[in-house]
Simulated scan of single mutants.
Amino acid sequence: MSTPPEAYYSEERWQNWIDRLRDEEIDPEDEDSARLLLNLQDDAAIAVAKIVNAAEDGHLEQEEALEELVDVRDIVLADVEVEDEETAFLIDGVQTSLVCVFAAAEEYLVRGVPEEAALPEYVRAAADAEAEEDFDAALSYCAQAGARIIDGDDLDVSVAEDIEYGLVAEWINGLDSLQSAVRDPEVIEEEEEG
């Protein structure tokens, strides 16, 4: 039994979220706006979790799962044309957070679960690497933390409190969405109104 194309995520689904964001006055201080942005992020993270689950359950070969991840990543990380600068900035933040979600899933599928350290140590190593401006290493450490989350470790987001705002903080935000998606991969309805 093969999975139909676009079963995990579609261009149309992403575009529907973007259209909603375009149509609303987005204010990150507003609870409904914040929820809409989080739903956009969580929805993509759920797609990633479903691909990983399908690979674990034997419904997808590793190579197929990696291809599905690339397909979803290409949709979600493509440039978004939004005239409102604030909205464009916020969508970019969501995309930045999701970079780590894809990296974590790939890490898990290709290299498995890293055993060298506890999850918070990967986060600290990522922050240290970012401070040294070694962004590739920082992403790699965050991806390893994400692989541990997929395997069942819990991320306490309070570890991010000491981290300066930057890429690692954004990636941890993505890992929080991944953790929610792995624990409860329920699809968020696009039409859902707050």
Rank of each mutant, 00 (worst) to 15 (best):
A65Y: 08
A78N: 09
C100N: 14
E133G: 03
L155T: 01
D154Y: 10
D92W: 06
V94L: 05
A125P: 01
L69W: 07
Y108K: 00
I46A: 02
S33E: 02
D136P: 09
G146M: 05
A45T: 13
S177W: 04
V82F: 09
R35H: 00
E63T: 13
D79I: 11
E192I: 04
L139M: 07
I172R: 02
L155Q: 04
A169W: 09
R124I: 00
T3L: 14
A54C: 01
V48P: 06
A34S: 15
E64M: 06
L139E: 11
D151A: 15
S140D: 12
E191Y: 11
A127D: 04
E106L: 08
E12G: 01
R20G: 15
I150Y: 11
A147F: 12
Y141K: 00
G194N: 12
E116V: 01
S2L: 06
V94A: 14
E85W: 06
E193T: 12
A104F: 09
R148M: 14
R13V: 06
I149D: 04
A44P: 01
P114G: 04
E67G: 03
R148E: 07
A169S: 07
V168A: 05
T3G: 03
Q41E: 10
S177N: 14
A104R: 03
E86W: 00
G112N: 08
Y141V: 00
D19I: 12
D162M: 02
D154F: 15
P114T: 06
E64T: 03
P120Q: 07
S158G: 10
T96A: 14
L175T: 00
D74Y: 06
A117M: 15
A181E: 00
E6Q: 11
E170A: 12
L119E: 10
D57H: 08
S180P: 04
P120R: 08
V48L: 12
I172N: 01
E24R: 15
W17M: 03
A145E: 04
W17D: 00
Y8G: 01
M1A: 14
E6N: 08
I26G: 05
Y9E: 07
V123L: 10
E115P: 02
E164Q: 11
L38C: 04
N53K: 13
A129N: 13
A88F: 09
W14L: 13
Y165N: 02
L40T: 13
N16C: 03
F89E: 15
Y141H: 14
R13Q: 11
E186V: 02
T3D: 09
E193H: 04
G58H: 11
V82I: 15
S2C: 00
L139R: 03
S158K: 12
L66A: 11
T87W: 05
A131C: 08
